[in-house]
Design a protein around this nucleic acid. Structure first.
Length: 303
DNA sequence: TTTGTTGT
């Protein structure tokens, strides 16, 4: 009896370890270092493993910039990838990011003759395993836009930075007219404009899949999936923004907008929700490294 | 101003 139990334990153990090794092998096999077509446009370092010591960081990285962007904490640690000017956590199950994180400064947003958005192409992210990678064909004729999570307009420093925002790992299916091209864009422009007042703006953006009460009175999470890879269509999107004031205080604003046609005259303030609501719904913690007492304002109200 | 799709 005891031996039997030991045997099955050993079996489970072996299976677990070999599965782990296989997983690691595939992650490494498909990590950018092993799959370089265009090194300039690829992420700097591959998946972050929270509990394993693998993949030493290549020497010529912008580690300084990344720690600057993530200075106030990671919202989560699932499949983190860093690019020249933003950081992304990828949801392999939904084929859409969990979150993207940006540190937006006046320099990032100002017009730049050296950069042309029209030269950028929507590109599959080769650093994602093909099982979990979204493709242009998934979006084709779906009726949805390939909507940026990290907005192209926040990364006008170099052409390479803008190009990286066009990776499909940074896209989510968004309603085009009335949402992505209108009210969501209005929110993105508003966040950019905050850099006129605040020199340091931190912005976390991501999808939500929110439950809805159906006729039988029970709550269900229901969302469409598109294309052969079943890319999830989020029901909502969130943006959590933190502005650093000159006197070392912070102001936070957090928004949730439904992925649907929104009237242009709807004020952005009507989409403000408490940050805790988003944290619970998304399973993330925002700006964990800032003591809540340091926020002078949350959603325009004194804290 | 910035956000984008589709068909040829």
């Amino acid at each position: 009896m005891a031996t039997q139990k030991l045997k099955s334990l050993a079996y489970i153990g072996t299976f677990g370890i070999s599965a782990f090794i296989t997983g690691t092998y595939f992650e490494r096999k498909f990590s950018p270092q092993h799959n370089l077509k265009n090194p300039q446009d690829s992420p700097i370092f591959s998946t972050v493993f929270a509990a394993t010591a693998v993949s030493p960081v290549p020497s010529e990285t912008n580690v300084g910039r990344i720690s600057q962007i993530m200075k106030y904490g990671f919202p989560g640690l699932d499949n983190v990838r860093s690019f020249d000017n933003f950081v992304l956590s990828y949801d392999k199950r939904n084929r859409v990011a969990h979150w993207v994180f940006e540190h937006i400064t006046p320099e990032c947003c100002k017009p730049n003759d050296q950069v042309d958005r029209a030269l950028s192409e929507f590109t599959p992210d080769e650093s994602i395993h093909p099982f979990f990678r979204s493709l242009n064909s998934d979006y084709y004729k779906s009726g949805y836009d390939r909507g940026h999570l990290a907005a192209a307009g926040n990364h006008r420093v170099t052409q390479k930075m803008v190009n990286q925002t066009f990776l499909l790992s940074n896209m989510a299916p968004q309603v085009g007219v009335g949402f992505n091209r209108d009210s969501w864009n209005r929110l993105e422009r508003y966040v950019r404009r905050l850099t006129r007042t605040f020199k340091n703006v931190y912005c976390c953006t991501g999808p939500l899949y929110l439950p809805r009460k159906e006729a039988n009175g029970k709550n269900y999470v229901k969302y469409e999936v598109i294309g052969a890879n079943h890319v999830a269509v989020p029901t909502h999107f969130f943006k959590v923004v933190v502005c650093e004031t000159k006197d070392g205080q912070f102001e936070m604003e957090s928004y949730v907008m439904p992925n649907q046609v929104i009237s242009d005259d709807t004020p952005l303030t009507s989409f403000m929700v408490p940050p805790e609501t988003i944290e619970r719904a998304a399973g993330l913690l925002f700006f964990d490294n800032i003591a809540r007492s340091k926020f002078s304002k949350i959603n325009h109200k004194k804290n």
